[in-house]
Computed example of a mutant assay.
Amino acid sequence: MSVTSKIRRQGGAAVITLPPTLLKLLHLEVGSQLELNVVDGELIARPVVQITRKRYSLDELLQGSEELAELNEQTAWARDGDPVGRELG
């Protein structure tokens, strides 16, 4: 697919426009980021892949605390006791 776009000035920046068809083809939307490179005199624009972080609900976070409490119970023996060497107490 070949698209022609005119460079224009907007404020202090030079701007090109991308037609909606091209955005849809590249799975981009307004606000997406592009990595721009010049290779052999050609401008190459690649979408920047954003790593999405999973959002957890409060219930999911608290569920993890139950597992952590169980782990703490299982390893309590390793934290009990008096210093045996020169470590700080």
Rank of each mutant, 00 (worst) to 15 (best):
M1K: 07
S2V: 13
V3I: 12
S5C: 07
S5M: 07
S5V: 07
S5P: 03
K6P: 06
R8M: 14
R8E: 13
R9T: 09
R9D: 07
R9Q: 14
Q10I: 12
Q10M: 09
G12E: 13
A13E: 05
A14T: 11
A14L: 13
V15K: 01
I16L: 12
T17W: 04
T17C: 05
L18A: 06
L18T: 04
P19E: 10
P20K: 06
P20H: 01
T21D: 10
T21K: 08
L25W: 02
L26Y: 00
H27V: 09
E29G: 11
V30G: 05
S32M: 00
S32A: 01
S32K: 00
L34Q: 00
E35L: 15
E35F: 05
V38Q: 05
V38N: 09
V39Y: 06
D40S: 13
D40V: 01
G41Q: 10
G41S: 10
E42Y: 09
E42V: 13
E42N: 11
L43R: 02
A45N: 01
A45Q: 00
P47A: 07
P47K: 11
V49H: 00
Q50M: 11
Q50R: 15
T52H: 15
R53V: 14
R53F: 10
K54E: 09
K54L: 13
R55K: 14
Y56D: 12
Y56C: 06
S57Y: 01
S57Q: 06
S57A: 03
S57W: 00
S57N: 07
L58D: 15
L58K: 08
D59Y: 02
E60L: 01
E60I: 00
L61F: 09
L62F: 10
L62S: 07
Q63L: 06
G64N: 09
G64L: 11
S65Q: 12
E66S: 06
E66M: 02
E67A: 06
E67M: 04
E70V: 01
E70S: 04
N72Q: 06
N72P: 00
E73P: 00
Q74K: 11
T75E: 08
T75W: 04
A76G: 05
W77D: 09
A78C: 08
R79D: 03
D80M: 15
G81S: 07
G81N: 08
D82T: 09
P83W: 04
V84E: 12
V84T: 08
V84A: 15
G85K: 04
R86M: 12
R86S: 14
R86Q: 13
L88S: 10
